[in-house]
Write a protein that binds this DNA or RNA. Sequence first.
DNA 1: CGCGAGCTTGATGCCGATCAATGCATGTGG
DNA 2: CCACATGCATTGATCGGCATCAAGCTCGCG
Lengths: 246, 246
Amino acid sequence: MQQAVVSPIKLEAFKVACSSCNLRELCLPVGLSAPDLEQLDTLVSTRRTVPRGETLFRSGDTFQSLYAVRTGFFKTCVSAEDGRDQVTGFQMAGELLGLDGISNDRHSCDAVALEDSQVCVIPYSQLEELSRDFTELQHQFHKIMSREIVRDHGVMLLLGSMRAEERLAAFLLNLTQRLQARGFSASSLILRMTREEIGSYLGLKLETVSRTFSKFQDEGLLEVKQRAITIVDPAGLKRLVNSASN
Amino acid sequence: MQQAVVSPIKLEAFKVACSSCNLRELCLPVGLSAPDLEQLDTLVSTRRTVPRGETLFRSGDTFQSLYAVRTGFFKTCVSAEDGRDQVTGFQMAGELLGLDGISNDRHSCDAVALEDSQVCVIPYSQLEELSRDFTELQHQFHKIMSREIVRDHGVMLLLGSMRAEERLAAFLLNLTQRLQARGFSASSLILRMTREEIGSYLGLKLETVSRTFSKFQDEGLLEVKQRAITIVDPAGLKRLVNSASN
DNA sequence: CGCGAGCTTGATGCCGATCAATGCATGTGG
DNA sequence: CCACATGCATTGATCGGCATCAAGCTCGCG
C-alpha cells in the first residue's frame, strides 16, 4: 500500500496470531481481553494469498468463512441479471469480507483483490461456536455487522442525495480517514482502483469522476497525477460534503 | 394495512408470545425448534404502540432494544449534518428495526411509524445472552443482520445504476412480494408512504415519482389512484427491471 | 518502440431536477 | 353542512448536471 509509518511488510515477521497482529486494534479482536484473544488465535490459523485481479469469492459460492484483510486492498461488487454491476465497497487492512454470505449460506457478491493481498481465514461455524463462550467476541462481531449496515446507509445517503462533487469529496475523505487510522498519511494516497471502479461505487460514469478530479485540481483542493492524489485543502473538501446543495 | 387474508386485528386475541404469534414464520423465530421458541417467549414480553407519525427511536438515542414490527408500517431515515435526509428502508410486519444501534450503542437513524403501529420490544443484551445458549437463535439472528446487508447492497445497485422507471418498478415489485409473503394480494396495494418518501428512498424527486406512476398507468402497467395501486401487468414491470438500459 | 489499458478532455444530448400552477382528498370550525 | 385550509399529488415548462460519444493522451510493459 502507501508509504506506511509502520511498514506492512514487517507484519510477516510476527507469528500467525491475532494476539500479536498489529492490526488487532482495527480488526475483529478490537477490545478483546487477553483470554478471549488467545481463543481467537485458535480460530484464525490459516491465511490465503490473493493476487491482484483474482477473486477471493464470487457471488454464488458457498459460504464457509469470513476473511479479514491482512495486507492489500479489495473491492466488493454485486451484479444484476442484466450484467450491470455496482461496486458496494472497498476494503483495506483490518476490514472484514464475506458478511453477505451468512444470510443464505452463499455469497451474494464478488470480492476482488485490487492489489496482491493476503487475508486471514475465519471459519464461520467456528466463529459462531467460539462467540457462544466468549461474550466479548460475540459482542464485537455483532458490532462489526452493525457497522457495515450503518456504513451502507451512509452510502445510500450519498447515492440518493449528493451531487458528483460531493460524492467524490466524501469518498476521498473517507479513504484518507481509514488510511490514517492505519498509520498512513492523511494527505497523500495512491488509489488502488480505476476511475471506472470509483464511478461504479459513487454512481457516476468514469468521465465524470475524471472531470471532477480535474475540477478539484483546478480549484486547488487536490493534486492529481493519475492515481496519485495529494489533498491540498482538506477543509475545502469537507466544506463541499457538508454544505447542502439545496 | 391492506385487506388481509388473516386480519391483523385478530392477532390481539393470541397471547403475547412468539411461539403463538402468526408472524413467527417471517420474524426472528423463523426455523427455531420448540424449546428455543419457548425461550424466546421469555425474552419478548413487552410491546410498544407507536401512533402514525411518531418515532420509535431517533438518531442519537441510546440503543437498548431491537424491535420487531407486529402491525403497521415504518420508515427509517438517516440525515446528514446539512439537513438532507435519505429514507433507507420501509419495514412491515415481521421485520426488525434497530440493528444500526448495535455498532455504537446509539441509534444512527430515525424510525418513524407511517401508520398506527405496534412493535415487540427485544432487549438486546438479553438477546445476546440467550443466543449464547441457543445456537439456532444465534444463527438466525446473524442471518437477519446479514440479510440486511445484502438488502442494502441491492439498494446501492438500484441507486447507483438504475433509471427512474427501473427504480420505481423494482420498488413496487419488492413491496408486493413482501406483502404477498404476509398474505396480502400480489396485485393491489395501498401505499403507506408519500411520493416524497418514495422519492427519497429511490433517489428521485417526488415529481419524478408521480410522473413515473402516471407513465406506468398510461402504458397499462398499473392503475394508480393516489395511494391505491393496482398492478395490471407484473411481467411488464419485471421486464423493466431486468432489461439493461445500457 | 509500439501496443493497450486507463485517463483526460471536448461536444452534444437527454433524463430528471426545478419552478410553478392546479387538482384532489381530508378535516375543522363557523 | 358548507367554506376554507392544509397536505399531498399531478402536470406542464424550462433548465442543468451528468451521460454519452468521440478523440487524443499517458504510462507501463512486452
